[in-house]
Amino acid sequence: VLHDLRQRFPEIPEGVVSQCMLQNNNNLEACCRALSQES
């Protein structure tokens, strides 16, 4: 999931992506929604 998200959101730091995964229990859809608001 992390690799997938890193490719979709290259401009977001890995730490932020990891934190997002923890908050969303590694749910790819939820992470994508959260990160798209972030970027």
Results as ranks from 00 to 15, higher is better:
V1Q: 15
L2V: 05
H3E: 15
H3V: 07
H3P: 05
H3R: 14
H3Q: 15
D4S: 10
L5W: 01
L5S: 01
L5C: 15
L5R: 03
R6E: 09
R6M: 14
R6G: 05
Q7C: 03
Q7A: 13
R8H: 01
R8P: 00
F9V: 01
F9I: 02
F9Q: 02
F9M: 06
F9K: 05
F9L: 00
P10D: 03
P10G: 02
P10L: 00
E11Q: 10
E11H: 10
E11P: 02
E11K: 05
I12G: 00
I12V: 12
P13C: 02
P13Q: 04
P13G: 03
E14F: 00
E14W: 00
E14I: 08
E14C: 04
E14D: 07
E14P: 10
G15A: 14
G15N: 13
G15E: 15
V16F: 03
V16T: 10
V17R: 01
S18L: 15
S18R: 15
Q19L: 11
Q19P: 05
Q19N: 12
Q19K: 14
C20P: 05
C20T: 13
L22H: 13
L22M: 13
L22F: 09
Q23W: 02
Q23S: 09
Q23A: 14
Q23E: 15
N24M: 03
N24W: 04
N25C: 05
N25L: 03
N25Q: 07
N26L: 03
N26A: 05
N27R: 04
L28D: 01
L28G: 04
L28V: 08
A30M: 09
A30P: 03
C31G: 05
C31W: 00
C31V: 05
C31R: 02
C32H: 09
C32N: 13
R33N: 07
A34M: 09
A34K: 07
A34W: 06
A34H: 10
L35P: 05
L35M: 01
L35R: 02
L35D: 02
S36L: 09
Q37F: 06
Q37T: 11
Q37E: 14
E38N: 09
E38K: 13
E38D: 12
E38C: 13
E38S: 11
E38F: 14
E38Q: 14
S39F: 09
S39P: 12
S39C: 11
S39K: 13
S39R: 14
